[in-house]
Design a binder for these strands. Structure first.
Lengths: 134, 134
DNA sequence: GCTTGCAGCTATAGTTACTATAGCATGTAT
DNA sequence: ATACATGCTATAGTAACTATAGCTGCAAGC
């Protein structure tokens, strides 16, 4: 049951990643150029499937393309250390923490504005007043 | 002290918005085309200064260009109601809440991975193991 | 035998919200 | 005279895809 090849449509189904994105990842070098059928269709194997799944998990965790690329290079080269990867991951977690803080601030300010709003049908809106304050 | 005109550099200083962005906002219609000096330099007044400040505040609150445009149209047309603006703002706050939830989930997962990591110099990294799990 | 539909292909453009660059004109300071 | 600062326009670049146009080739239905 190993060693069977499948098309890009099957890879897309297996991973939930749309076809264009798969080809995009190949173009930018995250995925290798796969074998082709006589008709020129891409043929994938389990290795590439797993590699794509790896990429998609790092994507879901908010790593950008270059960060994903670095992870892959570390893995490919086998020259990573646990420490290096942990540092990278912690750094990323900190950035996410900062984003959360910023968004919470936004949320607080938005809710503060709506709190002061009478929600009426008139045109004396305290939200706009706040946005227009000097 | 009113009615004095100033250049784009001054507007930039007053608002903290870089010059290119001001011109960009003009191009996409958020800011009006201002008067020009004999040399063709843009000349701004207090009204445009306040309009730009308004735009920048909505930007800081995470409203995208089209949302900012809608706010401006409501204000320009005078045909807004307090209720409408409140709804718009609350909806936006909800989207931000959702983003915060997603980011918190990311953060938790990242920290969980690093927790299980021995942080050593070896190449048996539990973070990678987690990312590669099937 | 013909058409329709589907899956794949390449190359290219569009998206968001700016940011940066190239190449120009003009005014002021040295 | 020359450098520097500020302004101008038009255009390209950014991130990470997503969508489109126009093509090939296979299989099924009429």
């Amino acid at each position: 049951m190993k060693n069977n090849l499948f098309t890009i449509g099957r890879l897309s189904e297996q991973t939930g990643c749309v076809v264009q994105t798969i080809r995009y990842y190949e173009r930018i070098g995250l995925l290798p150029e796969p074998d082709r059928s006589p008709r020129g269709h891409r043929l994938y194997n389990e290795d590439i499937l797993n590699r794509l799944k790896f990429i998609l998990r790092t994507r879901q965790l908010g790593f950008n393309i270059e960060e994903r690329r670095t992870f892959l290079e570390l893995v490919d080269g086998g020259k990573y250390t646990c420490h290096k990867i942990r540092q990278k991951t912690l750094l990323h977690a900190q950035e996410i923490k900062r984003k959360i803080r910023d968004l919470k601030k936004m949320e607080r300010e938005l809710l503060k504005m709506t709190d002061q709003c009478n929600d009426g049908s008139g045109t004396d809106c305290s939200i706009l007043a706040t946005l227009f304050r000097n």
